[in-house]
Design a binder for these strands. Structure first.
Lengths: 223, 223
DNA sequence: TAGATTGTTAATCGATTAACAATC
DNA sequence: TAGATTGTTAATCGATTAACAATC
């Protein structure tokens, strides 16, 4: 089968952004080519895994030489859909929501904060980091007007499911859930979960054992 | 072999905190017992997985009845090492560090912010959410005095490796890394990584495909 | 050509799941 | 006893890794 039709394993997809960051760094340093061995070092994995992962994108390496940094960067960006910005809406402007809005990390990486929404009328009309807070009722118009592609849930646990449902109703199919709650949504909605308490609890488990670094990870929790 | 000696798989460890939260909820609602089927629903996994996961803790269920919520809660807390608080130190009080310090989510779940450190002298001496900011040089004394168990890295990428090394030198063996960088540390140090940009990029990948919800997850990225 | 490094195969390992005997 | 549900086995699936032929 041709490379255009192979399905990329989930575990590989989760590593592509890590390679992407390494390649970006290499490109900034004007390094023209990179071997799987060196890229593996940078990404904190082994070389066989790098070669296997990259082979899902196509045969972009050159035997005896390595991978062309710029070319691989381009192919990988394309595969990840990162050749354009994807505006996000953050639901819930409490402590966490405000922090995320102020944190430049989203915008810098191609995910500008296009809108903020909350259910609290006293928050509506304020603005955070230059973005206005709207009532969550306005989600459908905001999604349409700002081209929102991804929803970020930063509400308390009790409000998360409702917020998610309203996002989906407004046409959003990708959700990043920071609330400590399990969302039930249609199977065609992609959900990823980030739970700071869960990460700390996992560290606590391995601490107790004091047999060290079994904690490997960037952590997608089951949605 | 007896239940005290079996090794708990990594994938199971990562789910225990999720079960723990479900059980806490059930206990608050005064629900005395729970079946694997119902717990699976709450946790967003299937029942076979729940039973297998719980079996690593011991044979704590009753056939025909289910699991005693309070008892399982206790056993699981014990296994995760959550019968006591584990104070954390946050390194880097920029946007993200301040947000994490202000966010109550850590303290609420048994991980109080015991100290804040930074390299910037202009930040030292200030205080955030009632916690003083110290210079990172003071880490060893802070760790000893406050009983710090876990280090949280909220520095820019360029400062992360140095901050981690100073944490390890100060006796910390568990690190939660929010910076977009790969840490190289001794194998006996547990590292977990949370990278918001990576999560969004994974969502971007599955968006492009529009074949939906392959994004499953709480995301441990390789350390 | 000789050395380096990819891309792929095959072996291994770990995680998931279905099924069902055990047993409350 | 009959019904419910666990705990465990065995089958399956997916991910990792080592090894090496292909080839620059």
């Amino acid at each position: 089968m041709t490379d255009s039709e192979r399905r990329i394993p989930e575990a590989t997809v989760a590593r592509l952004p890590v390679y992407l960051r390494c390649l970006t760094e290499l490109a900034e340093d004007r390094i023209p080519t990179i071997s799987s061995e060196r890229l593996a070092d940078m990404a904190g994995v082994n070389a066989a895994k790098v070669r296997k992962d990259l082979s899902y994108l196509g045969s972009y390496g050159t035997r005896g030489v390595g991978y062309d940094v710029e070319f691989l960067l381009f192919q990988m960006s394309r595969e990840l859909g990162l050749t354009q910005d994807w505006p996000v809406v953050i639901a819930g402007v409490g402590n966490l929501g405000q922090a995320l809005a102020n944190y430049g990390g989203f915008t810098d990486r191609g995910f500008p904060v296009g809108a903020l929404v909350d259910v609290d009328p006293s928050k509506v009309g304020t603005s955070i980091a230059g973005v206005n807070v709207h009532h969550i009722d306005e989600l459908p118009e905001l999604v349409a007007d700002k081209g929102i592609a991804i929803g970020v849930i930063a509400t308390p646990a009790g409000a998360a499911q409702a917020a998610a449902e309203r996002m989906v109703a407004a046409g959003i199919t990708s959700i990043l859930n920071f609330s400590p709650s399990v969302l039930s949504l249609d199977a065609d909605v992609s959900v990823r979960k980030v739970d700071l308490a869960v990460e700390l609890q996992i560290l606590s488990f391995y601490r107790r054992r004091s047999d060290g670094a079994a904690a490997v990870g960037s952590s997608p929790l089951d949605a």
